[in-house]
Write a protein that binds this DNA or RNA. Structure first.
Lengths: 211, 211, 211, 211
DNA sequence: TATGAATGAGGGTTCATTCAT
DNA sequence: TATGAATGAACCCTCATTCAT
């Protein structure tokens, strides 16, 4: 009687709860990114989210659990597999530029969350493991498969696949890190990064006979 | 040799002090790397260094100042300019492999200190700035000059110099990061990294006519 | 009998309310006895009573008020006056054994509630006073009168009446306490307590010439 | 060299520490007895002991640990075995009066600590067990042996030894409890308690042939 | 100069109570 | 009237720093 339209039940209540949870995570990302996880107090987060201190504990088990929440949300930003497989047919370099664009954009989107998370990823084993699995390993596997296939098709130079993939991945993390450090040249040239990245990386992957 | 020729008065007292300071920094690096700066207590450091809590404050102004101390010590590990300039003449690829070897080794040496420092570098403006200047900018400038020169000599493909340099630097940070994350393939293939790195980066820098 | 003769309008609604209140008190007794008043949360009580947190506040003013409720309910378990007065005529020792049996049983019945209450009785003046009046003083007065009468009839040794009554009462509390402490001999010999109690107390009250 | 007079070493420092620990326990007893363990804050204790909040944690692991400390101190007040064994020879009734006097006095001495402890003894298993072993069981065993011996010597009526001992012990606890409840007759007649207690208990223990 | 006990501000977390639905 | 999420005051405890010895 109260919810005949079972499709989207409880609607109101439920939606408010979800919104509030998101608001808290937004606040956590902003506050942690701004002053660092330890410098930030739960009250800082609560104030920015415009809730009472205690309310946060209705949604998260602990201050630390907010980081887990951010990590989960970050994982939701990840998709690429779709593009990747369909792009396998197209020209490799074009694909790389597109993929780089995609990554670079995501970094921009998620930068705040990454700034909030990364320092703790170094330090908390639980976070480290989750981050590695969700954020690094999955992508590494995809890239390895792609690279291997390209090499077998003769479209790329035979290289040490696992290490090369790590280097490319590492480069993204490293660029993010330099951005966070406030490196001027990188910030002003940010939109040219994908092209430069492709030039650096891809041309090096060309089979010798390309010339 | 370094002791006697110094003007004499350093002896005993002075050397003990210096040793003790180093012991404290060793302990700080180990403890901070192990549990993170905030999880670690000054007492943890004191105990590992085998001194009393208060003693640390005879050598450092604050807990945070220990990080500054580590940063300074890290800077002392940096030299390359010497090699770099002399190697400018030699074959570029050979130079790169050598330089990469050097960097990779240093990362290993300094990994503990970097693990202690990096998370805080994200978070403390003062540390960020020092780190950027001592550890990033100086090297970036050198690499830019070198790259520019090579390009002008026609030995390298004309690329976006500042961005390319950032990518290479970023890769080192990124690789360190992946190592800290515990990435298996990277750890087991660590000694092959310089060669793979050179293959990836350098071949991509070749002028087209090289072939 | 108690239901129909009441004037009718009690039905349903009213009875449900009363039942619910009892259910909440049952839960409170169980929870407080199990973990102690402060360790127990209102939510613990609510969950065991199968109501929402807020519902409890429709029946009780505060968490503390639950204790008052338990005390009131405990008082309802008390009656003895009836037996006492009628037994005044019978043989004193027989009366004592019967009375002890009665008390010992009550202790068993009310043990959970007493475990919930006693610790707070020590600590909360309001509770202390109510408990003393309802649970101690009334009975003390009765016992004093009885003892005084017996003495005057020459059936008991002339003793310090008020103190002796306190000792007997105290013994009940003390035995309950030892039971709660988990004393093995007391628990396994519990059904023999009335007889042993009578032997100890009553024989000591005999006039010397009785033998 | 620094402490040749090994007899009372480190003296100063060590004694100050011990004194401070006692001062904290004094304060804890007073505060917990006054408002109850949970109503009292660590700060209350600290203020009364005239130390900083944190100082308490240099001496005790937690707030709860203060109770353990009180229990330990209470145990130190206990001795009787000495008297007990030597008094085994003397007249039993005289011994009882003396022993009762002793107990009653101790209760007065330790009342504050007992008021602080008892409510929590009901509620904390760890405390309950310690209290039972240190404070009840030891004495129960002694009394049982004594009583048994007296019975075998024909000086006391053969009774259920374990239960009778529990009753006597329980009476002490119960009297303390009534005292805490503020019972007027008990308080004003407190000094007569040992005599009344002996009359009640001991005469009941007389063999029938005593007359 | 080294020591380590004392300090006390600060913060994560709990939970009784309220109140909109 | 029942619900249960929101509230925020309160409190235990940690730990960087100080300082008397």
């Amino acid at each position: 009687m109260s919810d005949t339209a079972q499709g989207q039940p409880i609607s109101r209540r439920e939606r408010l709860k979800r919104e509030r949870k998101e608001r808290i995570l937004d606040a956590a990302a902003a506050v942690f990114a701004g002053k660092g996880f330890h410098q930030a107090t739960v009250r800082d987060v609560a104030e920015l989210a415009d809730v009472a201190d205690g309310t946060i504990y209705n949604y998260f088990d602990s201050k630390f659990d907010l980081l887990i929440g951010l990590l989960a949300r970050l994982a939701r930003l990840e998709t690429l597999p779709g593009e990747l497989t369909e792009a396998l047919q197209s020209d490799a370099r074009d694909f790389f530029v597109a993929a780089f664009h995609d990554r670079i954009e995501r970094i921009e989107q998620g930068e705040e969350m990454l700034r909030a998370l990364l320092p703790q990823v170094f330090v908390r084993p639980e976070l480290r493991e989750r981050f590695y699995q969700q954020y690094v390993q999955r992508i590494a596997t995809l890239l390895e498969q792609y690279l291997q296939a390209q090499i077998e098709l003769g479209r790329m130079r035979p290289v040490n696949v696992p290490l090369t993939v790590r280097m490319v991945q590492g480069m993204f993390v490293g660029l993010l890190f330099l951005r966070i450090l406030g490196d001027e040249p990188l910030q002003s040239g940010w939109e040219d990064v994908p092209e430069a990245l492709a030039t650096l990386v891809f041309d090096g992957l060309n089979p010798e006979d390309r010339e």
